[in-house]
Design a protein around this nucleic acid. Structure first.
Length: 476
RNA sequence: GGCGACGUGGCCAAGUGGUAAGGCAGGGGUCUGCAAAACCCUCAUCACCGGUUCGAAUCCGGUCGUCGCCUCCA
């Protein structure tokens, strides 16, 4: 398999050395609800993981939560709750949404706050080696001790210095030295350490957790492109600085950002669509197909039109995969489809091409069904390959409305009687009303089927919170 | 300012040297009581200019435009 490696800036064979393959994906900071941008990232890495496992490779996946940081602290204070409570609440809702999205759980979901001792060990080790130094209650990483610093993001220390805003009143030896340990401030979560009470800096948790759960050298490390600098650059510095082993990560993989209204979808740009709403509106398969319909290294622009198109496409595959048909092998060349599918994913995870294979299969299956021909092999292939992309073919189901089913069935049954009596005006009226309510009817030879269609959804304008206003004011 | 990515039909999006996958939408048919679903047919010369080549969307140079990172961020 070939994958683009951010470190070498080219596509190259993915050659894992570990069995199972060691894979670490940077998770999220659980201070607010997940949005479609987070979903994009998790869907891509979940798909890679599923494909690797399906193709016979074993994988050990670690997906972390950074459950202590400035935003979490600010948000918790804002809500009058504790960081731990807020994080717990958000993590459990993420996990529930992941499940709905068809994300297979990682082997380990470590949390920063539960890994403090490993981080302290790591920091202490770095100090011993002269790669870090305590100053004014904090501990900083000494970037000048890392000759390769900047190699992942492709910039030199000199480039960075000119762009770095000057920190005032901080005892750093070099402007680019970054924090490993932050001295405690009143009211903030804190842990004891050799350098006094405090909390870990951002970055150190991933170095600590990846080495604890996967070893000092790992096969694949993933995350969004926005993490390349400084997060992943600093992870490399910490991990390689500590272990002396290069490379810390054999293959770096980064997904492009989701855009909305011409800019990145994120809290700070103001426009987001929550994952919760996306799931309700488009369904898990619709969202996955939207994301997988583009290449993971290209930015993906959110729009209702695009999402609707993806959801209809998902519906098309579902129809092909789940409607009754004549069993038996059939004449469709499912093996050729599998080969094309595999070739697509082996080539830097080309999911748009893999999806095209599924659509081709769907057309052939539908044709066979219409002709009364068998298509069992093709249908099985569609289900199996779709599963590799995490598609469940379950259709959209609005949350909390599942109990309406029996009543819809009743209306469908009454309408059938009207049709039997040739009362078409009344029958069509029932169908139209149901459509308006989000239930579409389809009459077939074998009876009437119904399915849900969803209401509209607009991107949300993020409402400024007190802490975000204070935060932006402080920047000036 | 530095680093990087991109500009393909109405929309989304593959393809990186041999005459443009797939999806959505549209048009025309078949099927249907009518619809829907499904099937068949149909719909692009790849931002612009110049160059290399027998041949370029695909390589090189330039122009215009868009976006990301450089600060919290998937």
């Amino acid at each position: 398999m070939e994958l683009y490696n951010t470190l070498t800036r080219r596509k190259q064979p993915f050659e894992p050395a570990d069995d199972p393959i060691s894979m670490y994906v940077c998770g999220i900071t659980p201070y607010d609800d997940a949005h479609l941008g987070h979903a994009m990232s998790i869907i891509i890495f979940d798909t890679l993981r599923r494909y690797l496992e399906w193709s016979g490779r074993r994988v050990r996946l670690v997906y972390n939560f950074t459950d202590v940081d400035d935003k979490l602290i600010a948000r918790a204070a804002d809500e009058g709750t504790t960081v731990a409570e807020l994080a717990e609440r958000q993590i459990s809702s993420f996990m529930a949404e992941w499940r709905e999205l068809g994300i297979a759980p990682a082997d380990v979901h470590p949390r920063a706050t539960e890994e403090i001792p490993s981080m302290i060990d790591l920091i202490a080790g770095l100090i011993e080696k002269g790669k870090a130094y305590p100053a004014g209650g904090d501990v900083y990483f000494r970037v000048r001790q890392m000759p390769g610093y900047g190699k992942l993001s492709g910039r030199s220390l000199d480039d960075m210095i000119s762009a770095e805003p000057t920190d005032i009143g901080v005892e750093k030896e070099h402007p680019m030295d970054f924090t490993l340990w932050k001295g405690a401030k009143p009211g903030e979560p804190q842990w004891e350490s050799p350098w006094g009470p405090g909390r870990p800096g951002w970055h150190i948790e991933c170095s600590a957790m990846s080495s604890r759960y996967l070893g000092e050298q790992i096969d694949l490390h993933g995350g969004g492109m926005d993490l390349i600098f400084p997060h992943h650059e600093n992870e490399i510095a910490q991990s390689e600085g500590h272990s002396g082993i290069e490379p810390f990560v054999r293959h770096w993989m980064h997904n492009a950002m989701m855009q909305v209204g011409g800019e990145k979808m994120s809290k700070s740009t103001g426009k987001i669509v929550r994952l919760r709403e996306g799931l309700d509106r488009y369904g898990a398969d619709g969202l996955r197909m939207f994301v997988l319909g583009g290449h993971y290294r290209s930015p993906l622009t959110y729009s209702q039109v695009s999402l609707d198109a993806a959801a209809r496409g998902a519906e098309r595959l579902r129809t092909a995969a789940t409607l009754p048909l004549v069993d038996g092998a059939g004449d469709i060349d499912a093996a050729a489809a599998r080969e094309r599918f595999i070739a697509a994913l082996e080539d830097d995870l080309n999911t748009p091409q893999a999806l095209a294979v599924l659509f081709d299969l769907a057309r052939e299956i539908n044709r066979a069904r219409a002709d009364g021909q068998a298509a069992g092999d093709a249908r099985d292939a569609l289900l199996e390959l779709g599963g590799v992309l995490g598609l469940g073919f379950a259709g959209v189901s609005a949350s909390g409305e599942s109990d309406a089913g029996p009543f819809i069935d009743l209306l469908v049954e009454l309408r059938q009687q009207l049709r039997g009596a040739k009362q078409y005006d009344l029958a069509d009226g029932v169908r139209d009303r149901l459509t308006e309510l989000g239930v579409a009817l389809e009459d077939t030879r074998d009876g009437t089927r119904w399915k849900r269609v969803q209401p509209e959804l607009e991107p949300e304008e993020a409402v400024p919170t007190a802490d975000s206003l204070v935060e932006s004011a402080l920047r000036f």
